[in-house]
Computed example of a mutant assay.
Amino acid sequence: MKPVSTNTLFKHCYGRYAIAAVNVFNMEQVHALFAAAQACNAPIIVQLTPAARNFGHPEMLHAMVSAAADIYPDVVHAIHLDHGNEAHAASAIAAGYNAVMIDASHDPFEQNIARTKAVVELAHVHGIAVEAELGVLAGVEDDLSVDEAHAKYTDATQAKTFVAQTKCDSLAVAVGTSHGAYKFSGKQGLQFDVLRQIQVALPGFPLVLHGASLVDPAEVERINAHGGTLRQDASGVSVEALQRAIQLGVCKVNIATDLRLLWARVYREFFHTQPDQFDPVIPGKIYMEACRQLLTQRFEVLGASGKASDLKTMIA
């Protein structure tokens, strides 16, 4: 099935369920994502970061996603550039992505507006949706690092002005999450009062939750039991918090850290317990299946399972 616009996905899911936007870097993750989506009849957003594009080459990565769409023909999906700048966005637009993110959230408000507006004008000519970000998340994602002391919640009044001036199609908001495995080091959790204020200011407008992995403590424990040194206070977004956020306008939930933790656990555990092994295929199969199971659970949590059929009818 050909990829669809994220605008189509968000129009269908707003207030009812959320779309899992999954960052992929390798073949195993792409296979697992599409296999889980097809089995669950769940729509997905395939996210490609600049770091992932640099790692595997943009054409190679895009070709894997296109091949997966042929292998799993029933999957309703969109291809999205995550955390890009103007050059990344222009490249993704030329490559035929369905959506791009321009991340100018670290710039002053007016500069963020100007940079976002320029990308929106370029993308909309080609019928491509644009995600922007307002407010700053703490933590680490690829080569992005923001000290927690500089994290800033999204202001609802600014959000309304920002969307009106930029004409962006969705907005990533800072409401208490952070990138990486240590999302709630202070145990503060999602700020639902902030999210509610944003929804009131932007009724019906699709909001995006970055840093939304669940971060299973059991995975961290298993990583450390086989040579890892991850901090034990890792904490992610709870199931209850995600489901409450969906009711407050969150349509897109980004997932990256959970897949990375799972990768570290599977490979550390495999080679530690079977030191005579050196074949990448064996742990690769284990990771692919574990990743498929994890994503299946996420689709259930987000309420997306079974929703692709309705979308196909709407698209047709």
Rank of each mutant, 00 (worst) to 15 (best):
C291E: 11
N224Q: 10
I286M: 15
I79T: 12
D276E: 15
I246S: 08
H150Q: 05
Q38F: 06
G189T: 02
V30Y: 08
F34I: 03
P280W: 12
I45C: 08
A78R: 01
T257D: 07
C168T: 12
G204S: 05
M60E: 10
V173T: 10
Y182N: 10
K11I: 04
F184Y: 14
L33M: 15
S178N: 09
Q111N: 08
E28H: 08
D147M: 04
K11H: 13
V239R: 13
F299I: 07
N23M: 03
A36K: 00
P50N: 09
L259T: 11
I286G: 01
L207K: 04
Q232H: 14
S238M: 06
P73D: 11
E86V: 13
Q277C: 13
N85H: 03
V76G: 03
D276G: 13
V239T: 09
G189I: 02
E289H: 15
V220G: 01
A132I: 04
D107M: 15
E86C: 05
D103R: 06
Q197A: 14
H179I: 01
L230H: 12
V194F: 05
V65C: 12
K252W: 06
R244G: 04
M1A: 13
G139I: 01
N26K: 13
H226Y: 15
Q293K: 14
E28N: 11
N85F: 03
A68Q: 02
A63M: 08
S5V: 01
I44L: 11
L209W: 05
R268H: 13
P43H: 10
D147T: 03
H272A: 14
G303N: 05
P275Y: 06
G204P: 03
A308Y: 09
H272Q: 12
A172D: 03
N54K: 15
Q111G: 04
K117S: 10
D74P: 00
V281W: 13
L295C: 14
Q47R: 06
E269T: 11
Y17G: 00
A36I: 00
Q29N: 05
L202R: 05
V100Q: 10
A132Y: 09
H226T: 13
E221N: 11
K167T: 12
F271P: 07
M27C: 09
R265Y: 08
S213T: 00
L144D: 07
V253T: 09
A290V: 07
P206M: 05
A245R: 01
Q158H: 09
N41K: 15
A114L: 01
V237W: 03
V4I: 14
L144A: 06
V220K: 01
N54G: 09
S170R: 06
F184W: 08
D143K: 11
S105Q: 01
Q111E: 10
K117M: 10
